[in-house]
Write a protein that binds this DNA or RNA. Structure first.
Length: 287
DNA sequence: ACGGCAA
C-alpha cells in the first residue's frame, strides 16, 4: 500500500514486511492507511496519516490492536466533553490519547513515544456529527482486529515478548485491566531474561482464582498465577496422572477470549444446549 | 483544501 515506489526502504523500514491486511479511510481531507504487517519478529499494525503535504505514522504492536479498538470505542461512545486523556503502555512504547479542539473542530491526538525514536503523532478529526470520523476509525480497527484473528498462530503471544502488555493508566471500560490496582508490573521486570520459559510450576503464586470444567472425559483447570516476569493464566488439561499446560501471559488473554468467542460463534448450532453447568469453582492449587 | 501536535 501507499505507493511504495522504488523499494528504497530497508534496514528496519519495514519495506519488505508482508502485508496481511490493508485498509484506507478518508476523514475530511485526511487519508488514513491501516496496514497489518508481518516480519520475522512478529506482527504489527502500521497506521499512517497522509495529507497533501505531510505523512505521519505510528506502529501499534499486535497485542495493542484490541486496546486501540477499545479506546476508540471509548472516545466515540462516551458522553460529550467528559473525555479524559488516556495512556496505553505496550512494553517499550507508550501511546497517549488526548482530545483537542480548535476552530476546525474536535480531534483526537494519538502519540507514540518510544525510547529509540522521535515521538510520532496522528490526529484524527472527530467529524462534524456524532463523532463519525472517530467511529469510522473505530470500525476499521474492528475489521482489522477481526481479520487478525484469522492469521493468529497459537504461539503469537508468548513468542513476542516485546509486545507484552504492561498496563493502562486508567479504567475506561469493563474490558480493561486496571494497571494500577494490586501490583503493577514494571516493564523492566517483564523484560528480564527473555530466553527462559515463562513460568515454572513451583514459582507459581496463585491469586486465589481457579476454575475447572469437564468436557467429555477431560478436565481443564484454569489458574491465575504470576512470577517474576508477570501474570499469566495457566490452562491445564488433566487426564489420569498426566497434565499438560499452556501458559498465557495476561497480555494475550483478551485476544484469546475474542478468538474463543469467534469459534463459539461459528459453531453455535452444534453447541446449542450445552451449558456451562459442569463448571465449578475449586480451591486454588497449593504450591 | 482545510489543520491541529511539537521539536
Amino acid at each position: 500500500m501507499e505507493g511504495n515506489s522504488g523499494g528504497g526502504e530497508r534496514g528496519g523500514g519495514g519495506g519488505n514486511d508482508v502485508e496481511l491486511v490493508c485498509k484506507t479511510l478518508q476523514v475530511e481531507h485526511k487519508l488514513f492507511y491501516f496496514d497489518l504487517k508481518e516480519n520475522p519478529r512478529g506482527r504489527y499494525l502500521k497506521i499512517s496519516e497522509k495529507t497533501s503535504a505531510t505523512r505521519s505514522t505510528i506502529i501499534v504492536p499486535f497485542s495493542g490492536i484490541s486496546w486501540f479498538l477499545d479506546l476508540f470505542n471509548y472516545y466515540v461512545s462516551s458522553d460529550d466533553h467528559e473525555l479524559s486523556s488516556k495512556e496505553l503502555q505496550l512494553d517499550t512504547k507508550v501511546f497517549y490519547f488526548d482530545i483537542g479542539e480548535n476552530r476546525r473542530g474536535r480531534f483526537l491526538k494519538v502519540s507514540e513515544a518510544s525510547v529509540s525514536r522521535n515521538r510520532s503523532t496522528i490526529i484524527v478529526p472527530a467529524g462534524s456529527t456524532r463523532d463519525e470520523g472517530w467511529a469510522a476509525f473505530r470500525d476499521i480497527l474492528a475489521e482489522i482486529n477481526e481479520a487478525s484473528m484469522l492469521f493468529i498462530l497459537p504461539n503469537q503471544q508468548s513468542s513476542e515478548p516485546s509486545e507484552r502488555l504492561v498496563g493502562l493508566s486508567d479504567d475506561v471500560g469493563a474490558g480493561f485491566i486496571s494497571g494500577h490496582s494490586n501490583q503493577p508490573v514494571s516493564a523492566s521486570e517483564l523484560n528480564v531474561d527473555r530466553s527462559v520459559e515463562l513460568p515454572a510450576q513451583d514459582e507459581i503464586n496463585n491469586m486465589g482464582v481457579s476454575k475447572v470444567i469437564r468436557a467429555d472425559q477431560k478436565r481443564f483447570f484454569f489458574d491465575l498465577g504470576s512470577n517474576s516476569r508477570g501474570h499469566f493464566l495457566r490452562i491445564s488439561e488433566v487426564a489420569g496422572s498426566d497434565r499438560s499446560s499452556i501458559i498465557l501471559p495476561l497480555s494475550g488473554l483478551k485476544q484469546f477470549h475474542e478468538i474463543v468467542g469467534h469459534f463459539v460463534e461459528i459453531t453455535k448450532d452444534r453447541i446449542e444446549g450445552m451449558t456451562g453447568a459442569n463448571v465449578r469453582t475449586i480451591d486454588p492449587p497449593q504450591r
